[in-house]
Amino acid sequence: MGLTTLFAEATVMTLGLALSSLVLGLLMALAFSLAELSRCKPLALATSTVVAILRGLPEILVVFFIYFGSTHALFLLTDEFIEISPFVAGTIALSLIYSAYASQTLRGAFMAVPKGQTEAAVALGISRFHCFFRIILPQTWRHALPGLGNQWLVLLKDTALVALIGVHDLLLQARMTAASTYEPFTWYGIAALIYLAITLVSQNILERMKSRSNRHLTSSHSVTEGPVEKTVSPGEATA
């Protein structure tokens, strides 16, 4: 197989890993942030603890822990040696790491949506469920987008960590080619360029999403006068 094909496949692997971790991570971050804001104190405390641990550990340790630890845990539980694939372990580990940071961004963003927004919906007889998805979440999204975007760029590069548990990603491909051809500079350089290209495309898409999420704030009235609008953007602090 040509090196181009190999590198293309490795790029697809890196992107697949990053995107599936993003989706899973966002769902977990949403669950974590809601749990931390919940009125049930034990749940909030337990979630904060998990998040603190995840943020306190070196990321590579989380990856190792999920990959080797889960096999071991499954062995203890079922007495059988079930191996989970490096890709699955990598996705779980990366989404856990992502969600630990993203949940803090989301929590801040939820708190930045004024209480009156919910009240106006409740006063019109709109159900809580509907209010959450139609009124609260879209406004949270605007506050959280810059922070979540930063964390996505970090996640993209963290995918390189899972080369260490044998996921055939861009970094692993570069290392193997570098070793076999004795041209490390070239092949690591090519890997670097591919990472950079993905980052640039991501940034471009993020910018467009941000201006779309801010499209209702185009007039000069918005910042100074609108009593309905807070212009805090707490999301950026946590990346």
Binding site: G116, Q117, E119, A123, L124, G125, Q139, H216, V228
Partner: peptide, 18 residues
Amino acid sequence: QLRRKVGMVFQQYHLWPH
């Protein structure tokens, strides 16, 4: 049901900005 028959206009209006 009550709230669908009893409307409220808040001091700060609380329009949905998005």
